[in-house]
Nucleic acid binder design. Structure first.
Lengths: 148, 148
DNA sequence: CAGAATCCGCAGGGATACTG
DNA sequence: CAGTATCCCTGCGGATTCTG
């Protein structure tokens, strides 16, 4: 038997998501866990890239969101923006030291995604099957003895 | 052909976010990168927990979002839901094998968040400082040659 | 206690047009 | 080419209420 609640895993230890550290996790996760940040980090892990190159490597992203997310990441000190005074203009983005430290954990997550995609897809199908079956049974037997 | 662009990191290798694998990453990231999933995974990494216990361990979360996210994770096969036929009702949630494999990568990300929170905070302040300065210079010198 | 259902505000983010 | 500005709409998610 265990005393009511077991202890959380190492990274959450002592925080239980309730202290400053807990809020820090939430804060960073909100930043890094948004729709595009990790994709940009992952793409930039290859090295310096231009704005257009980034856009073409991240299919779904719009000009607007690429710009906004890049600004955000630049503000957080995860990448640098270098505008060359040329015409046509050329702007290059590159991960900073801090940004590069994010490559490992984010890659781990990406690897997990690839590894488990089929497992998850299967689980979803199975869940939807039984969920639909349960719904049908409720609809049939729920409204009292004889449905027909 | 496009030898101008360096190759992405291992997990993205061959995918460039453009193939099925790329979409898989996006897909999983959308699921796992939402506001609460990783927090729930992290909390459940300690072991089986009841609905109420989960809620009290994840401060900001509402009943609604806890339920919704739990359903989502259950559907993805990352956790199991066990409803005990008692009164008052008792429902327990526990990570599955697949769910537990997500602990490591997500913990890594959380650890990164804690490690770099001060660095990021500092970067933000610095960025905002120079951004404000730049804006002021534009406002002052923008309409004429001598700022004063 | 665990949750389903409803209402609703608001921010994320797409499409488009314009600029330097 | 690399943005910026604007419009607009979807859906995330909080607060509240009702059920088993």
């Amino acid at each position: 038997m265990m005393s009511s609640v077991p202890t959380p895993l190492s990274a959450y230890e002592g925080s239980c998501l309730e202290t400053d550290e807990g809020r820090a996790i939430r804060d960073i996760l909100d930043r890094v866990g948004d729709k595009w940040s990790l994709l940009i980090i992952g793409t930039l892990s290859a090295g310096r890239l231009r704005f257009g190159e980034l856009q073409s490597h991240i299919p779904g992203i719009s000009q607007r969101m690429l710009t906004l997310t890049l600004r955000q990441l630049e503000r957080d000190g995860l990448l640098t923006r270098t505008a060359h005074a040329e015409v046509p203009p050329r702007v290059e983005y590159e991960l900073t030291e801090t940004g590069r430290t994010l490559i490992e954990p984010s890659t781990a997550l990406a690897a997990w995604a690839i590894t488990n995609q089929s497992l998850i897809a299967a689980a979803r199908e199975a869940f939807d099957q039984t969920a639909a079956a349960r719904a049908k049974r409720r609809a049939d037997g729920g409204q009292r003895s004889h449905p027909g």
